[in-house]
């Protein structure tokens, strides 16, 4: 009963303060929205780049060549092992004969070369189609594990290509974290100062509340909620800004460069990312408010 009553009071006071200092609050709302939108842009680029990388990774050739003395049992066991990996979409066995046929078909000009050798130079192999890029570490340890198998003689895997994709994604992520971090700190600083000014306009009330026996938490709660509400509104605003930017990009920028649209179908941020932006905004608002409210209330 009291908790409900107090919560209602805290929210009402927070909304009152938001409205009372609306001009100031617009400043912190804008700062939060911009910082979250910047973070959102990087998140958006990162998620889409990851989708592109995953699509490309499916086409990275991964072939396990088998030893000439591999038994049927070895081949069966390896096939089972490959198919059971979460990284593998499917693994196709290519026998020695089939490999030779394929060579003759693909390189008809050199078909005689293989015949001249007198024996089939092509080993049997497993051609693996990957499900997704996965992490570089996971991919490498999977390849290494299979390489250790007794019947495997060699592996064809473009590690450099995977490393480059990984590096590019890391660069995007780091850029997002750095720029997002700078903007987030700027937002917390702005909210902290805006809330501090709001608190000063309530100085007399805070003093009276303390004199009649209000707990510090009771005095601070409305300001913390106000900060969190500012953050939430900023987060929602940032999603709006991002949506507008993406619409503008899809409608006006993408048609000028068909490569962009041909690479991958651009997707807006998923629900979890939107929720993270709003939640992050609330956390920023709360943190910004908390840095001011403790100090100012204690001074009252």
């Amino acid at each position: 009963m009291t908790i409900l009553q107090n919560t209602r009071y805290f929210v009402r006071e927070a909304l009152h303060s938001l409205w009372l200092s609306r001009a100031r609050n617009v400043l912190s709302l804008a700062t939060i929205a911009i910082s979250l939108a910047v973070t959102g842009v990087f998140l958006y680029i990162s998620l889409n780049a990851r989708a592109i990388a995953q699509a490309w990774a499916r086409d990275i050739p991964l072939v396990f060549f088998l030893r000439g003395d591999a038994t049927e049992a070895d081949i069966g066991q390896l096939h089972e092992k490959l198919e059971s990996s979460p990284l593998v979409e499917h693994a196709e066995y290519v026998g020695e004969k089939e490999a030779l046929e394929r060579f003759k078909r693909l390189y008809a000009k050199f078909a005689g070369l293989a015949t001249d050798l007198g024996e089939n130079p092509f080993p049997a192999s497993f051609e693996v189609k990957l499900r997704s890029a996965g992490s570089r570490g996971a991919m490498q340890s999977f390849v290494d594990e299979i390489r250790q198998t007794r019947c495997v003689s060699d592996v064809q895997f473009d590690e450099e290509w995977v490393r480059r994709i990984d590096a590019a994604l890391l660069l995007i992520d780091m850029g997002g974290i750095f720029l997002g971090g700078v903007f987030v700190l700027a937002s917390i600083f702005t909210i902290s100062n805006v809330i501090r000014l709001n608190i000063y306009s309530y100085q007399e009330e805070i003093e009276i509340m303390m004199l009649v026996g209000a707990k510090l938490g009771f005095i601070r709660a409305p300001f913390l909620i106000e900060g969190a509400l500012q953050g939430m509104l900023g987060g929602l605003l940032s999603i709006g800004v991002l949506f507008g930017l993406l619409r503008g990009f899809v409608l006006y920028v993408a048609p000028m460069n068909p490569l962009i649209t041909s690479l991958v179908k651009l997707q807006f941020l998923p629900v979890w990312a939107c929720a993270a932006l709003v939640g992050g905004g609330m956390l920023m608002g709360f943190a910004g408010s908390a840095t001011s409210v403790g100090k100012v209330v204690s001074q009252a």
């Binding site: 303390m210 004199l211 009649v212 026996g213 209000a214 707990k215 510090l216 204690s298």
Partner: peptide, 8 residues
């Protein structure tokens, strides 16, 4: 300060 309310 955090316990002042008890007095007041």
């Amino acid at each position: 300060l955090s316990k002042l309310y008890l007095l007041r």
